[in-house]
Structure formats: structure tokens, C-alpha cells
């Protein structure tokens, strides 16, 4: 029983990280058709921003995370306006640019901070544990899950209650018609990049807490699973991403524990294959 509780909470924690990355990827892809490989860079900027402001400026944990999130958001907005926007409607080139950015960005971080993992500043309360139903659960799991829930609610409120949210939801369905109503949809592109960048940067900071360290390539592996989450959940659907993230996190944890290492990842890919063959549009997509 205690194993199950621990595995479930760890799986949910991992799912929370996936969701934070996948929600932005999903919105960016749904609205702008950009498969954003630079998302791992936003994540890394968030992680290093948090680490840097904590070790060099002496920021306490929460302000340090906020610093990292702001840095990631600014990076995302700059990337969108300077590099993605001039290639409007040339989606393959946009994807290629994000691939180049992910390579160059990670290399730049490596040049600045070194290739070796740096110890991440964790607040004391996050290193402790809590007993739940006989299981000893590290507190950082609750931090991850809590952050993801807050972000999920915030994004839903934004999408349901604001005019920009309305534009984003409509744009995911039919971008051309949104412009034909007199709306400049490119402003919404910048906005989803900002939201995605902020959530990814937060994921970077929280991944630092979860893994205890930060390294330039950390984002890449998380990004791949976030991509899988986006496809399983359905491109453009934040709710779908949330469900898929939980599913992937749990499947990965339980199969890794009860079978061999590597089986967890393989089962996630199996899950992806099954979902795609049954519903090519993903869980939240319209059955095609």
C-alpha cells in the first residue's frame, strides 16, 4: 500500500512537470502550428535563472523562482517576435528555427555555466518528507502537483474568462476565420508563447527541485515526454494535456517500479501508439 501511494504521488509529480511543459507546447502548436523545440530552452532558462538569482543575488526560493519564470517568459517573447514571427505561415522553417535555437541555446548555457550538473538551491521544507497512509513521501511531490494545479486553473480561467482566451480557443479551431473577424491573431501568438515560456520556466525551476540539480541538457528528455503528452492529449487542448500528463506520469512510474528500468518509457510509447491508432487526434481531439 505504501508503495502504491508513493508511486502514485511521484507519478503525479512527474505528470505535473510534463503538464507544465506540455500545456504551452499544446497551445503554441494548436494556435500557431509551431512544433516548438525551443521549449526545452525556455525550461533551461527558468532553471538557470532560478539557480543564478539564488546563488548570485541571494534570492530566497520563491523570488528566485519568480526571477526564473520572468527570464523564461522574456526569452519566449523574444524568440517569438524576433525569430518565429518573420516566418509567419512557413511552418517547416519555423520548426527548423526552433531546432536551431534548442541546439544553440543549450550550447550557450553550457558555455556559460559548464556542462556539469549544478546543485540546485532547494528550500528546506521541500527536502523534508510527509507520512501519508504509511508512505514516506518527499514534500517536493506536493510542490510539483500544487504548482501544476494552480497553473491549470489559471490557464483555464484565462481561456474561459478573457477575450484573449476566447481568441486563443477560436484560433486553435480556425485561425483564418479569426482574422476574418478583424482580429490580429499574431498578438495571440506572442501571448501563447509568453504563457508557454512562463509555464516551461516554472517547470525548469521545479525540475531543479525534483532532481536536486540543473544541467544544460535536462530539458531535452523532459521535452520529449512532454511532446508525447501533447500528442496523446490532443494538439491544442490544455485539458487533454493535463489528463495525458497524469496518465503518462503514472504509467511510467508504476511500470518502471514493477518491471525493469526502461520498461516505463517503453510503456509510454506503447500508450502513445495505442492512442494514435485508436484516435489519431489524441484524447481530446475529434475522432478522425
Amino acid at each position: 500500500m505504501s508503495n502504491i501511494v508513493l508511486l502514485a504521488l511521484t507519478g503525479l509529480g512527474l505528470g505535473a512537470l510534463y503538464f507544465l511543459i506540455a500545456s504551452g507546447l499544446s497551445l503554441i502548436f494548436g494556435l500557431a502550428d509551431v512544433l516548438n523545440f525551443a521549449h526545452g530552452l525556455f525550461l533551461a532558462v527558468g532553471a538557470y535563472g532560478t539557480w543564478w538569482s539564488s546563488t548570485h543575488l541571494g534570492f530566497p526560493f520563491v523570488p528566485a523562482v519568480m526571477f526564473g519564470v520572468v527570464a523564461g517568459t522574456v526569452t519566449a517573447v523574444l524568440v517569438e517576435t524576433l525569430l518565429i514571427r518573420p516566418l509567419y505561415r512557413r511552418t517547416i522553417e519555423q520548426v527548423l528555427v526552433t531546432v536551431g535555437l534548442s541546439l544553440a541555446g543549450v550550447a550557450l548555457l553550457q558555455a556559460a555555466f559548464g556542462a556539469d550538473p549544478l546543485t540546485f538551491p532547494r528550500p528546506e521544507w521541500a527536502t523534508g518528507t510527509t507520512r501519508i497512509l504509511g508512505a514516506i513521501v518527499p514534500n517536493d511531490r506536493f510542490l510539483l502537483i500544487g504548482a501544476a494545479v494552480v497553473v491549470l486553473v489559471a490557464i483555464q480561467v484565462f481561456l474561459r474568462r478573457t477575450r484573449f482566451g476566447l481568441i486563443v480557443r477560436a484560433g486553435v479551431e480556425d485561425r483564418t476565420m479569426v482574422t476574418a473577424l478583424g482580429i490580429n491573431v499574431r498578438t495571440a501568438f506572442t501571448l501563447v508563447f509568453a504563457i508557454g515560456g512562463a509555464a516551461a520556466a516554472l517547470a525548469g525551476a521545479l525540475a531543479g527541485v525534483y532532481f536536486g540539480n540543473v544541467s544544460p541538457g535536462q530539458g531535452t528528455s523532459l521535452l520529449i515526454f512532454a511532446f508525447i503528452v501533447v500528442v496523446i492529449g490532443g494538439m491544442g487542448s490544455v485539458t487533454g494535456s493535463a489528463i495525458a500528463a497524469v496518465l503518462v506520469g503514472l504509467v511510467q512510474q508504476f511500470t518502471s517500479f514493477y518491471a525493469a528500468a526502461g520498461v516505463g518509457e517503453a510503456s509510454v510509447v506503447l500508450l502513445l501508439a495505442v492512442v494514435l491508432l485508436a484516435r489519431p487526434g489524441g484524447l481530446a481531439g475529434r475522432a478522425a
Binding site: 477560436a170 479551431e173 476574418a180 478583424g182 482580429i183 491573431v185
Partner: peptide
Amino acid sequence: THAIVRRGLGYAPEDRGIFAGL
């Protein structure tokens, strides 16, 4: 397109162009 429409053109397209999920 958006600037043309803002000049005062209203468009009802052939496929109606409504947003099904809204």
C-alpha cells in the same frame, strides 16, 4: 486580412466559419 475587415467589411463564409467548440 484583419486590417481589411476592420475597414468595415463583414464576412459570412461558404462553410459558415463558426467555431464549433465555442
